[in-house]
Structures are given as structure tokens and as C-alpha cells.
């Protein structure tokens, strides 16, 4: 441990210190402003409870859909023909770096009442997705699933093909190999990916607002409630921010090992 510390030069050390401060100081300042004495009351106010419920339901649903659809996509990217995956990969990963408002606008362009697809649905059935909880969930899948795909593709690529070959020799068909041999081996990465997808969906703001709007109990998520509370009830905004911050830090603490090495094969 000591020998490692000595290898950090003063220059690197000072920049590292600055870098840490850039992140740590705002977080500390936020913690200072969180109204700890009235925290319970702030978090159980009607608006907070509604936003908490919307956020929990939609982010968990988004994580589930991300797993259900993202695992097969990651498999396709890991094992599919290069010519196909090279085309698909940059597109399905794009939401990771896409500005959330643009993500929301894309969804609106497709599924809005006047959307490329949405207009036909609306004309035929009178159904429009914006302003519904489904829209919040879809926005969450759109921005969150790429994280799961990214982690899981890496994990699938790292798998030892001999294990799958052995299963094939024993007569397992492709579906069995996927579900019973490959997926169990990447369960750590799956956990990490699902957690990242969930957290990304939980924190989503721009795409949700652009595509789903903001109504208490239906589409107003925690981050949106924080933004609205900024106007009227600052201590509520800080209380909810504190909650989101704690969730983020706890999650990163739990995921640390997995994030460093997402493709670890499970202990036998």
C-alpha cells in the first residue's frame, strides 16, 4: 500500500486532489443544505410520495424491460455477424451520450400524437403515449438499456466458448445454451448492467419531460419534482436531492467491484 502511494507524483497528486474536490465539494454542499431535522416530513409530503411512487414504478419497469430486451441485444452484438453488429452497435449505444432532451424528442417524433408511428395509432385508436406512465417507462428503457447492453456485451465476448461447445456436444440446442449456459455465467455483469440501467432511468429528466410531460402521480418523477420544488419549496428539493444522492453513492459502493471487472466469471 505504502509503496503504491509513493508512486504518485506531486503534480498528479494535486490534479487528482482538484479533480476529487470538483465532485466532492458540490456533494458536500448539497448534504449541508439537506434539511435533516425535517427530512422524514419532507420525504413523506404528498408531492414527494407521489413522485417517489412514480419514480420507483417506472424505473423498476424500465430496468425489467431493459433486461428482457437488452440481454438478447447484447448477445446479438457479441455473437452476431460483424457486418450487422458494426452497424447496430453505435446506434443502440448512442443514448449513452445523447443529450436526454434529444432522446425525448426522438421518442416524441416516433410516438407522439403527430409522430411518424404515433399518428397512425392515434388515428386508429385515439391512443397517444405522451403524458402517460408508459411514456416515462419507455424513456427510461431508451436511455438505460444501452448501459446494460454495453456491460453485457463485454461479458458475453469474454466467455469461454469451450463451455458452450461442450453443452452443444451434449445435445443442448441454441436456446438452451443461451439461457442455461451463457446467461448464468454473466450473472454478475447482468446485475451490474441492470443496476446501471435502473439508476439511469431513475435519474432521467430531459427525455421524460420532453416526451412524457410532468403530472403528479402519473409522469412527474423525482428529478422533475426536485426541479419543480426549486420554485416553491427549496427544502423539499434538497430533501429529495439528498435521497437521490444517497441512492447513487450506495449503488456505486455496491457495484464497485463489478464495474471494475464486469465480465468476471462466477466462482465455481
Amino acid at each position: 500500500m505504502t509503496s503504491r502511494q509513493k508512486r504518485i507524483s506531486p503534480a498528479v497528486g494535486s490534479f487528482a486532489g482538484l479533480g476529487v474536490l470538483v465532485v466532492v465539494l458540490p456533494i458536500l454542499a448539497l448534504l449541508v443544505r439537506v434539511p435533516w431535522t425535517t427530512l422524514a416530513a419532507e420525504l413523506s409530503s404528498p408531492e414527494s410520495v407521489l413522485a417517489l411512487r412514480v419514480s420507483l414504478v417506472t424505473s423498476l419497469a424500465a430496468a425489467m424491460f431493459s433486461v428482457a430486451l437488452g440481454v438478447p441485444v447484447a448477445w446479438l452484438l457479441a455473437r452476431g455477424p460483424q457486418s450487422v453488429t458494426a452497424l447496430i452497435r453505435p446506434v443502440v449505444m448512442a443514448p449513452i451520450v445523447l443529450p436526454p432532451t434529444v432522446a425525448g424528442l426522438s421518442l416524441l417524433a416516433l410516438l407522439g400524437r403527430n409522430g411518424v408511428l404515433g399518428r397512425f395509432i392515434y388515428d386508429a385508436t385515439g391512443y397517444a403515449m405522451p403524458f402517460t406512465m408508459i411514456a416515462v417507462i419507455l424513456a427510461g428503457v431508451f436511455v438505460g438499456m444501452p448501459f446494460l447492453i454495453m456491460v453485457l456485451e463485454t461479458a458475453f465476448v469474454q466467455l469461454d466458448p469451450e463451455i458452450e461447445q461442450a453443452a452443444e456436444t451434449d445435445g443442448a440446442h441454441a436456446g438452451q445454451i443461451f439461457w442455461q449456459v451463457s446467461v448464468p455465467q454473466v450473472r454478475h455483469a447482468l446485475g451490474t448492467g441492470a443496476a446501471l440501467a435502473w439508476a439511469r432511468a431513475l435519474g432521467e429528466f430531459g427525455a421524460t419531460l420532453t416526451f412524457a410531460g410532468s403530472f403528479p402521480g402519473v409522469t412527474r418523477t423525482l428529478p422533475q419534482q426536485v426541479y419543480v420544488a426549486l420554485e416553491s419549496n427549496l427544502s423539499n428539493a434538497y430533501a429529495l436531492s439528498g435521497l437521490l444522492l444517497v441512492i447513487s453513492i450506495v449503488m456505486m459502493a455496491i457495484l464497485r467491484g463489478n464495474l471494475r471487472n464486469p465480465f468476471v466469471t462466477p466462482q465455481a
Partner: peptide, 21 residues
């Protein structure tokens, strides 16, 4: 009741102009 309470008037205008409401 409204179906959405947007954070500012720009956002409301954008949605009605886009025909979403």
C-alpha cells in the same frame, strides 16, 4: 384536470404547437 404541468410556458407552447395536446 390538465394532463401535464410543464416547468415553463415555452415547454407548454412547444407541446401544443407540436399537436401533442
Amino acid at each position: 384536470k390538465p394532463v401535464s404541468l410543464e416547468p415553463d410556458v415555452k415547454s407548454v407552447v412547444a407541446k401544443i404547437v407540436a399537436g401533442e395536446a
